[in-house]
Amino acid sequence: MSERLKVHDIAHARAGDKGDVSSISVWVYDPKDYPLLKRALTAERVAAAFPRLIRGGVTRYELDHLHGLNFVMRDALEGGVNASLNLDSHGKSFSYLILGLEIDPD
């Protein structure tokens, strides 16, 4: 095995913003990978992965029948589009932060 499995290998995602809240939905390509995604990508895992970015809580909503997870991250947009001087002040690219996380298939 050369590289470890990334969320990006099994799922796709889209980021949206409202104020300083970032919401990212993550969907597996193949339904049989959904249990793995659900087990590996917990709200705690996401919060712990980016402590400097996500300063508020992370809530995970589950849409089991559509094989997707929705993460709502508070105080996660560096102040939001009003205050952030990030080139990407909406956090549009943050979906790829989650897709870049490594997951353990076991």
């Binding site: 889209r14 949206g16 919401s23 849409l63 997707g68 929705n70």
Partner: peptide, 12 residues
């Protein structure tokens, strides 16, 4: 599906 939850927090 990606658009269904775009900028949505609680889907319910």
């Amino acid at each position: 599906k990606e658009q269904l939850l775009y900028e949505v927090h609680d889907p319910a």
